[in-house]
Design a protein around this nucleic acid. Structure first.
Lengths: 339, 339
DNA sequence: TTGTAAGCGTTATCAC
DNA sequence: GTGATAACGCTTACAA
């Protein structure tokens, strides 16, 4: 079955394609009669607009590229869902790509999206992202670029991030208020801004409450449960072991909890733990884990809105940096006192 | 910065756009010299092929639509990841859309993807999918359509699914072998084929082992933990309560376990539970939950391969139905005996 | 080996 | 109010 074009409709009605186009676009200079006729035959011939032709002509593909490290991480897939829900009603499609945290892949993907004439790119930088040239290049092509969660400091590029420091501050403060005296911190990759900020928030909270910062209490791990267990073991082997852990990841928190229970620690009575990300599993556990929520759905929607603003204002270089506030979800793993 | 086209290169070299095009496409009839020259100036002018123009001309957009109920479900996002990993290296982009389980949205999305001239559609039918006309329509446009996981029986349409019955059979058989005498089954929506098949596998396993099927032991719930709890409560209130549950979802299994522990049941000693989907959280729990793995990554890759085959064979109507074998992951929640 | 010109399906700018 | 025509950027017969 051949695809019907506006020419087919034109031929059918003995008018010209231009008229058909105008009628379909509800151009006021077209008579109601012809409009009705065109619409009717369009339906009859099952006409569907070819978006590619429109895109080529207009220079707008109505596609937006979304780039994440991995798609099957709850945080990222939920951000994408937020973006989708905001952009689809406006007629945009979302093209997703994953970098697998590779810097090279990130460059390729951005280039590829540009070739595909996307109208914008919404991206969370990969862990090994190299340089900023590919990002600046996007701007030079007049294509809006918006960072979310993991940003890079580049002039003229907007971002939607979480106030990681504040989240860490809240978590640490909460632990202090629970009466914890020696709070350790598990982190991942301190070359990433988000983890630097979480560390900073942790430190700040300690300082604000007259507690000393102990470098031995900060331990970096790979985002895995096993690593969390090992780290907890290490911490508990210190001359003065901690009585609480604020982990920059939920899996780290989980691993720590597993180890602590193995050695007979009672949680939250003897030991408190707070994670970060509010992954779904944290609430499913028999011992639900307190965690800092990153509101990924809102982050996605916000990033999409920033994109739309840039498109509408027609100025790619407007830098807008939205910082979302985290919210601490207090659960059993850190709740000594009720209420 | 204006985008450079092959015309810009042509002008620069005082040749014609056609020659440039051929040179870039490594056409053997172009002299090595001009090729080199073209490539060099292409690089110099920072030329990037406009995929839209290519798509319009060739009729192939190099985009594939992937449609799922929700993207932020581990199963679906992992299938998408599989599709991506298979298709990206072949130069395809993946456009994702979510139906939110709505039949109407499914129709709109399919139509929209067709307008966008996708080269194929890979879809898991929405729960409330209405009719088959929109699917048949895709075929009539000569666009390959592939179902995964949730399929519809339509002649000429390929699918990649899991052998749900076999998975259910394995799970039930395993429970029987653990010595369970009264095995209940939690399901969700029996209007969906996958749940029908899981029920069938459960029944078959019972029959094959001389156990009677008791309709009171089958209970349908919404895919939520609370519902799982309630259902477990109901089951335990029966004159002859079960001593095992095979749940068609992991969340259902989790809810059941929570209730059972509340009333003091020892798992797996007194009661065994097996879930379905092998969601990540099942292994994180303090009491890891046995579950049937659906190998979503493989499912995605396989669906992508089937799509590629259809594209290459140039015949949309080749029906190929791949059925993947599930594998039961035995964990503590159902492991009375070791080994 | 390279140039010419048509065509993919739209929309926009002139005309009339 | 409608028609002709050019243009978006690329590929591809057909010529030369």
């Amino acid at each position: 079955m051949k695809k019907t074009t506006i020419y087919d409709i034109a031929k059918e009605l003995n008018i010209t394609a231009a008229t058909v186009s105008r009628a379909l676009n509800d151009n006021p200079r077209i008579s109601e009669d012809t409009k009705k006729l065109v619409l009717a035959t369009a339906k009859k011939l099952n006409y569907k607009q070819n978006k590619l032709a429109l895109a080529l002509k207009s220079g707008k593909s109505k596609n937006v590229g979304v780039v994440v490290p991995y798609i099957n991480r709850n945080f990222f897939s939920t951000v994408i869902r937020g973006i989708e829900e905001e952009l689809n009603p406006k007629g945009y499609n979302v093209i997703i790509s994953q970098t697998h945290e590779e810097g090279k892949k990130e460059i390729d993907i951005v280039q590829n999206l540009l070739n595909a004439q996307v109208d914008g790119i919404i991206i969370s930088a990969s862990r090994q992202s190299k340089g900023n040239d590919h990002f600046k290049y996007v701007l030079s092509k007049n294509v809006p670029l918006i960072f979310f969660d993991r940003k890079k400091e580049i002039e003229g590029i907007s971002s939607v991030t979480l106030d990681d420091a504040q989240g860490a501050y809240q978590a640490t403060k909460h632990l202090i208020e629970q009466g914890c005296k020696h709070i350790a911190h598990m982190t991942i990759d301190l070359s990433l801004l988000i983890y630097q900020n979480r560390l900073a928030g942790y430190k700040q909270a300690l300082a604000d409450h007259g507690m000393e910062f102990n470098p031995d209490y900060v331990i970096a791990l790979q985002s895995e449960i096993v690593a969390g267990k090992d780290a907890a073991k290490k911490l508990m082997g210190l001359p003065e072991p901690p009585d609480a852990i604020f982990s920059a990841t939920d899996l780290g928190a989980l691993g720590a909890i597993q180890y602590l229970r193995e050695i007979g620690k009672k949680i939250p009575e003897d030991f408190c733990v707070v994670g970060f990300s509010n992954e779904p599993f944290t609430q499913f556990m028999e011992l639900p884990i307190s965690s800092v929520d990153q509101s990924p759905l809102l982050m996605g929607k916000t990033a999409a809105k920033v994109f739309l603003e840039q498109i509408e204002s027609n100025d790619v270089k407007i830098e807008k940096n939205v910082v979302l506030s985290p919210s601490l979800e207090i659960r059993k793993s850190s709740q000594k006192t009720l209420g």
